[in-house]
Amino acid sequence: VQMSPLVLEKPVFTKDQVVSATEASKSLSVVRKRAKRAPQFIADHNDIDTVIIDYAAYEEMYGALQYLRELELDRIAADRIKNGPHEFIPFEDTLTPEELAEFESMDSDAISDEGLFE
């Protein structure tokens, strides 16, 4: 079963974290300071369309997302290895015409076997 990247639950926040777009534009420095403590949700005509967060929180979220993407790729690869399809794909078919031409033009004796495995 493929997991969808859609948000299953919406974030929970308090009314103290909601700032009107007008207020945010007038007092950005205040909103930035408040964002160090908790995300600030910017509302335009009562619809939240922007979130201001502390950069450290962003880095943490970004790192977690990258980690989860890697886990998902690993899971997909493991599933494909386990369940197939198990058709043979020739090496040459995995390269673009340019990559294949470059590969075929390489001198196989340019590096000695000893140098290759150092």
Rank of each mutant, 00 (worst) to 15 (best):
V1G: 13
V1Q: 12
S4D: 15
V7W: 07
P11Q: 09
P11R: 05
F13K: 01
Q17H: 11
Q17C: 11
V18E: 12
V19G: 01
E23T: 13
A24R: 05
S25C: 07
S27F: 03
S27K: 10
S29Q: 10
R32G: 06
R34F: 08
R34M: 13
A35K: 06
K36Q: 15
K36M: 12
A38F: 12
F41A: 06
I42N: 03
A43T: 06
D44A: 12
D47V: 15
D47H: 14
D49I: 14
V51T: 06
V51Y: 04
V51A: 02
I53Y: 04
I53D: 01
D54W: 02
Y58K: 04
E60R: 13
Y62W: 10
G63V: 02
A64M: 10
L65K: 07
Q66P: 01
L68P: 00
L71D: 09
D79Y: 12
G84A: 03
G84N: 04
P85M: 05
E87M: 13
I89Y: 04
P90N: 04
D93T: 05
T94N: 07
L95D: 03
T96M: 02
E99D: 14
F103E: 09
E104N: 13
S105W: 00
S108G: 11
S108T: 12
A110R: 13
I111F: 12
G115T: 00
L116G: 04
L116H: 09
E118C: 04
